[in-house]
């Protein structure tokens, strides 16, 4: 989609921007909350990527002068029970959250989309059999099934990612399936067949762009959930093995034991989690509203009616 729009922007003059720039401009102009969310996501990404340069100390560096230290000018957010600088650990924790969040959510959305489109469009026996397997999977409490899987696979970040991706992917296939069932009844699917499209082409070219909105929603609601569940798993000892600084681990391990003596140990990772979850949700909502042409109102893709009239005069 972006490539065609980019081509036309060259030919049609400056009025038409490339797709991504267009989304960016409209995000800032029309969705202030989404912009805040976007900034939070951006900060999270930058923090995760450049953690090595941003953190004042190493993530596992122990300072003997700082056991349970309250925030000071040296340790801006304080230190934990082992004398590790909390700011540094939160910055490195952002990296883990980014990696786990992005990878697991991507896997889950791909799994959901694949299962959902297949069962929704083909229907009949395929739908029946596959969806009963999904039912069976969803009958187990999520946390238990993930713990069992991690016990089998062994501890580690990638194991957590795969397990989270599968868990949310299979459950989320229902959302995609529902959307596909709604879309496939439309006349334009028949019209696509009437111009000679094959089934894979219809799925890829006609159905997928139409369910992008629920998929984006799925992605943006899953990502904070995944980050939270990773925290839960870490809390239970099935997540990212220590001493790696996962926010969930920080919140639950030392944070819980020293909650009254040194509340900052629990507060900062909690605050970080909340901000990130809020930011991703807002950003995702805004992007969904902008990308889906069906939700475009009077202020359409090419600006207001006024600006359009002005352009026509030229």
């Amino acid at each position: 989609m972006s490539s065609t729009t980019a081509n036309s922007s060259i030919e049609a003059g400056p009025k038409r921007r490339s797709f991504l720039v267009d989304v960016g401009v409209r995000l800032i102009r029309e969705k202030p909350l989404g912009t805040i969310g976007g900034v939070i996501v951006l900060i999270l990404l930058i923090t995760g990527i450049f953690a090595d340069f941003l953190a004042p100390f190493g993530m596992n560096e122990i300072h003997s002068d700082a056991f349970l230290s309250a925030p000071t000018s040296k340790y801006l957010l304080g230190a934990d029970n082992l004398g590790r600088d909390l700011l540094s650990r939160i910055i490195f924790g952002a990296r883990i959250s980014v990696i786990v969040g992005l990878c697991a959510t991507t896997i889950s959305v791909i799994v959901s989309t694949f299962i959902g489109i297949m069962t929704g469009y083909l229907g009949g026996k395929v739908d029946l059999v596959v969806q009963r397997m999904v039912d069976a999977w969803m009958c187990f409490p999520g946390l238990i099934i993930m713990m069992v899987l991690i016990t089998i696979l062994g501890p580690g970040m990638w194991q957590v990612i795969i397990v989270l991706g599968l868990q949310y992917g299979i459950a989320g296939s229902r959302v995609v399936r529902g959307a596909v069932i709604g879309i496939k009844e439309n006349v334009y699917v028949d019209a696509a067949r009437a111009i000679g499209c094959s089934t894979p082409r219809i799925l890829w070219q006609h159905i997928l762009p139409n369910i992008l909105a629920p998929i984006i929603i799925l992605f943006t609601t899953r990502m904070p959930a995944v980050i939270l569940v990773e925290a839960s798993l870490s809390f239970l000892g099935f997540g990212i093995p220590p001493p790696a600084p996962s926010w969930g681990g920080m919140l639950s391990g030392a944070g819980r034991s020293y909650m009254f003596m040194a509340p900052w140990i629990a507060i900062w990772p909690g605050v970080a989690l909340s901000i990130v979850v809020y930011g991703i949700n807002m950003f995702g909502d805004a992007i969904r509203d902008i990308v889906d042409p069906r939700l475009r109102g009077g202020v359409g893709r090419y600006g207001t009616a006024k600006s359009r009239a002005a352009a026509a005069e030229k």
């Binding site: 065609t4 006349v187 028949d190 019209a191 762009p209």
Partner: peptide, 16 residues
Amino acid sequence: GMIFQEPMTSLNPVLT
């Protein structure tokens, strides 16, 4: 070639 009854629903809303 085939033309369907309702143009509003026989064009895919999310494709140019």
